[in-house]
Amino acid sequence: MIIMVNENITELEKKLVPKGTVSVIGCGRLGIRVIMDLIEVHRGGPLQIFAYDGANIAKNDIIHRKYGAKIGENKAKFAEDFFSDKVVAVCENITIETVQSIKGDVAIICIAGGDTTPIREAIIKHCEKNNIKTIGTNGVFGIEETVKVGDAIYSDGPVNYVNIENEGHIVVGTGRYIRDGAPITPYILDEISKKMIIECLKIINKINK
């Protein structure tokens, strides 16, 4: 049997190239998953990823160590070293004073630990002013919970504590609070990362056509 090869396939493949820039703010258990998933996108995905984090890898950062990281390495620098063709490390934590350094088409907010509300609000406001689309979390706790995607304005969960004035900030999560007593499980983080990537790719494909 003779199989006819479409001569346009090569030309179509050439069009499926990386495009756009994504800033991942926080390279912890969720952030490193997001970065690795973005790196793996083939025939598309972002052209460049800025990884922001000033923290170093600790013994309990199991996901980083699975990828070969050494204890004491900076988390953002590890991501850059893992795939420097695409990832640029910014080895500092984003603060209200440095929020202006966030750039690109999409900012994925993966910061955690302590009260992150003020810096989340600052990031979202900065991005809104600079036409950068934002994606964040809305509860990462859970065992069997469904991971939901929605606009922050219309979502229930920890995001309700963040002062968001306008539509457009996408949130992904279980809607569970730390007070609920559920753990943070790797499979929930995997699902959150997956859905964040889907939303990110939708944005990149739309704004770069």
Rank of each mutant, 00 (worst) to 15 (best):
I164P: 08
K75R: 15
G139T: 05
V106C: 04
E199D: 08
N163L: 01
I3F: 05
L189E: 11
R176S: 07
E80Y: 06
I2H: 12
A79Q: 03
I124N: 03
D37T: 05
Y161E: 13
K66S: 11
I164M: 08
S193H: 02
A51C: 07
V5L: 12
E165S: 11
D190S: 12
R29N: 12
V34S: 01
D156M: 02
H169D: 09
D156A: 05
S23P: 12
Q48N: 09
H64T: 03
V5F: 06
V24N: 00
K148P: 11
V162S: 03
I39G: 02
I102L: 11
N93R: 12
V88Y: 07
S23L: 04
A122T: 09
I188Q: 00
K75W: 06
G68L: 06
V147A: 01
C110E: 05
T137D: 07
I203W: 11
A122D: 13
E40T: 04
H169S: 01
I135F: 07
I188E: 00
M4E: 15
S155C: 11
I2D: 13
T117D: 08
I184C: 13
N74G: 13
D190V: 04
I153L: 15
K209G: 11
M36Y: 06
V149T: 13
G150P: 08
S193M: 04
I94A: 03
K195S: 09
M196T: 10
A58V: 13
G72M: 05
A79S: 13
T116V: 14
N130Q: 07
D115R: 06
M36R: 10
K103I: 15
I184V: 15
H126P: 15
R176F: 11
E13L: 11
L12Y: 12
I188K: 00
T174Q: 03
S193F: 02
N131H: 14
I71T: 14
V22T: 08
L38Q: 02
P118I: 00
E92S: 14
I178S: 10
Y177L: 13
I203H: 05
G44C: 05
E128M: 04
E7G: 00
P46H: 00
G31C: 05
G72R: 09
K195P: 08
E13A: 08
E145G: 08
R29D: 12
V147G: 00
L12V: 11
A69W: 07
N74P: 14
K125D: 15
K15T: 06
I197F: 08
K195M: 12
V99E: 09
I207N: 12
I63Y: 15
I203R: 01
S155H: 02
N166D: 13
C127P: 13
E128Q: 12
N131W: 01
K129L: 08
L47H: 06
G114Y: 06
Y52V: 03
N138W: 10
L16A: 09
A58M: 12
I164V: 13
Y154V: 09
G26V: 09
V90S: 02
I57E: 03
I62H: 07
D81A: 05
K209D: 11
P183T: 00
K66Y: 14
D37Q: 12
I153G: 00
D81R: 10
G114R: 10
G28H: 02
T116W: 03
K66W: 13
D85W: 06
K75N: 07
K195Q: 15
I71R: 03
I197S: 04
V5S: 10
T117W: 09
G54F: 04
K195T: 03
C110F: 02
T146A: 09
